[in-house]
């Protein structure tokens, strides 16, 4: 591992641990709960940041995995009455769903643009379906799906094995923060393995990777599945945070928001989506406190401006500025997604 990367990891780990142990001491419980949701969003941002920035797969429907995770948790928690099994299932189900969807797309060799279309459409289907389950007949075991009303209450996280010991908001913060650090460093570790190297190679040059004998369909499906699982994890945490899930989790607006986090923070880095999620959600919260300027207006404007003016995003641009002061520029990330459009031209 190059020294610069190691230094960066140490810095991030130090900041992470400082937040993990320091924040509960300095802020009150209400603020801590508010900050917990930023942590959850950061995980969600990472899930897309991994798929898009490292796998080169632009998923317009990341919200599908998020919503699926949240609903899976809510529905199974109501049925089981404790949280450990439902929590694991909320990661597993979106992971399997993403694997199936990914396999369908990648083995069908559908181009990027059509992949965007399909992920978008799948999200729409889920949204419309969940939205239309308000009727009492839509029941899974003991849980009513509730349609547009959502599911208002279900058992929240407990100490594994002890359904009576529910986590308080401070403990929830610890859980969320530990998951964020796990996902962040776990993904970093993954990228240093052989698997990670092949994933980057595919992003950089699909045809070349394939001519070396790597089955890009398999790798892309795996990346997509991992991203889906992490999205599901974020969904499960989200459900626990508010003790409420609603079809809005599946909405296009939610998908757009995740994309904005990633593009603002920066593709091809892990820290970018985290920074993007926190920054954008902070701006959204500020905007929510006044009534003049509309939220969608600002988010949309940000997306347009970043695509036009700063397509690399904040963190890579910042990193470039810093390294230019020192050494050579960093690796590019998103152009390759477009170059890869026609991997095999025989069809």
């Amino acid at each position: 591992m190059p020294d610069s990367a190691r230094n960066r990891h140490i810095l991030v780990a130090a900041i992470g641990l400082l937040i993990l142990f320091g924040l509960p001491v300095v802020v009150d419980l209400v603020t801590l709960l508010e900050i917990s949701i930023y942590v959850v969003y950061a995980i969600l941002g990472l899930s897309l940041g991994f798929i898009w920035g490292y796998g080169g797969i632009l998923c317009f429907g990341q919200a599908a995995f998020f919503g699926l995770g949240a609903y899976t948790y809510a529905v199974t928690a109501i049925n089981v009455g404790e949280s450990t099994g439902p929590f694991l299932l909320a990661i597993l189900l979106p992971l399997v769903f993403a694997a199936l969807l990914g396999a369908m797309m990648f083995y069908g060799r559908i181009s990027d643009v059509y992949m965007g279309v399909i992920t978008l459409v799948v999200t729409l289907i889920l949204f419309k379906f969940i939205n239309s389950t308000a009727n009492e007949t839509w029941i899974v075991g003991k849980a009513r799906l509730g349609g547009f009303n959502g599911i208002p209450a279900f058992p929240t996280l407990n100490v594994p094995g002890d359904p009576g010991a529910l986590l308080d908001p401070e403990q929830f913060f610890y859980v969320a923060m530990v998951f964020l650090l796990l996902v962040y460093f776990g993904l970093h570790w993954l990228m240093t393995t052989r698997f990670g190297r092949v994933v980057v190679a595919i992003r950089e040059n699909e045809v070349r990777a394939e001519l070396l004998g790597y089955d890009i369909r398999l790798y892309k499906t795996a990346v997509f599945a991992i991203g889906g699982g992490i999205g599901g994890l974020a969904g499960a945490l989200f459900a626990n945070w508010g003790n409420f899930v609603s079809p809005g989790l599946f909405s296009l607006a939610q998908s757009a928001t995740i994309i904005i986090w990633v593009i603002v923070g920066g593709l091809g880095t892990m820290i970018g989506p985290v920074v993007g999620a926190v920054l954008i959600q902070y701006i959204t919260t500020l905007l929510g406190q006044q009534g003049v300027i509309n939220n969608a207006f600002v988010l949309g404007g940000i997306l347009v401006l970043f695509v036009l003016l700063l397509p690399k995003g904040l963190m890579p641009t910042l990193g470039q500025l810093l390294t230019r002061l020192r050494r050579a520029p960093r690796r590019p990330a998103r152009r390759s997604a477009e170059q890869a459009e026609g991997g095999r031209d025989g069809h």
Partner: peptide, 8 residues
Amino acid sequence: GLSLLLTG
């Protein structure tokens, strides 16, 4: 982004 912006 434009779609969000126009809605706003």
